[in-house]
């Protein structure tokens, strides 16, 4: 595997001081990233998710070199980011969803022109890349508008284009779909898919919208309290997240909650009942048994939503952290 991004036991601690009483100040160390190890191969598109404060943005900042890790080793394209930040900067693209690289008081086109100079992009490359971005991200109407007049979604699309004009090998996206409407989200996703497949750009994508992940990433990493808690395919999440499928059954008449091995009734509403069973188990024996023992009219199966799976993973964290010690 040609690993483009490598992390080995990476840690980042923040010292925070806060007032404790009138004069006393309390020093506390926050472990934002706590022994993180993973690799991302060239050309991969990886989802990087986790609850608020999990350490995602901190990881991305270390990967760009603007934060120095407190420990561990880190390399991007063979370079230690914090040591050679400026050199690496030519080879990476970054989008911080809540911030902008564009110049507030300049028309979009001038911002891009400045980007061309910053990265010293050859004229023909620049023209070709800009044309592609303008078409796919629907920016044509916006090129002569000052950035301060763009809506959030327009600005975000413009920012994504700005991060790709210099053909970066790696693209870090920290919540690139935050605040976008459905149409813009679809456009951005389609664009990212193209960038990843056609230019083989490696993409690390942070988001709270799991649809982004479902539609774009074959691999997903879940981070929590600065630690990697899952790394693998999307479907594998179901097994790890102990997710359940639901059997919705309609009986001929109202019945007390059914009692059946391998499933439990979670809800009853007249003749209809909801039975939960492990997502990894087969539904066939359950259905057979139900049909044999009860007056069955109709049934359907609901797959667990990825949101629920993730929510359960994050939720489990809270319970665990409530334990003493």
């Amino acid at each position: 595997m040609d690993a483009l991004i490598q992390l080995d036991g990476v840690r980042k601690e923040f010292e925070v001081r806060r007032r404790a009483g009138l004069l006393r100040r309390e020093r506390r160390t926050v472990r934002a990233v706590d022994g993180l190890s993973f690799e991302v191969a060239r050309g991969e598109m990886v989802g990087y998710i986790g609850p608020n404060g999990a350490g995602k943005s901190t990881t991305i900042k270390m990967l760009t070199g603007i934060l120095v890790p407190s420990g561990g080793r880190l390399s991007v394209a063979g370079v230690d980011p914090s040591r050679e930040r400026t050199r690496l900067a030519r080879r990476i693209g970054v989008v911080f969803g809540q911030r902008t690289t564009l110049w507030w008081d300049l028309p979009l086109r001038d911002s891009y022109e400045l980007v061309r100079r910053i990265y010293r992009i050859a004229r023909d490359r620049y023209t070709a890349n800009l044309e592609a971005c303008v078409e796919l991200l629907d920016l044509a109407e916006l090129l002569d508008v000052p950035v301060r007049q763009l809506s959030l979604g327009q600005r975000m699309r413009a920012d994504i284009a700005a991060a790709l004009l210099h053909d970066p090998e790696v693209l870090y996206l920290d919540e690139p779909t935050i605040g976008l409407d459905v149409v813009s989200k679809a456009k951005v996703r389609e664009f990212l898919r193209q960038v990843n497949t056609e230019r083989a750009t490696t993409v690390l994508l942070t988001t709270h919208d799991l649809t982004d992940i479902e539609q774009l990433c074959r691999r997903v990493m879940v981070i929590d309290h600065g630690r990697l808690v899952y790394d693998g395919g999307l479907d594998g999440l179901h097994a790890v997240g102990e997710s359940e499928r639901t059997l919705v059954v309609d009986f001929e008449r109202e019945l007390p909650p059914v009692n059946i091995d391998g499933a439990r009734a979670v809800r009853t509403e007249g003749p209809r009942q909801w039975l939960a069973f492990p997502a990894a188990a087969s539904a066939a024996p359950l259905v057979a048994e139900l049909a044999a023992r009860y007056p069955l009219v109709d049934l359907s199966i609901r797959e667990p939503a990825i949101e629920d799976v993730i929510a359960r993973m994050y939720g489990g964290r809270d319970e665990a952290s409530r334990l003493p010690g």
């Binding site: 070199g65 930040r85 400026t86 900067a89 970054v94 911080f96 910053i118 990265y119």
Partner: peptide, 13 residues
Amino acid sequence: SGDVAIDLCRPAN
């Protein structure tokens, strides 16, 4: 505000 992060991500001094 932390926007300086953007400036520092550029290959410029």
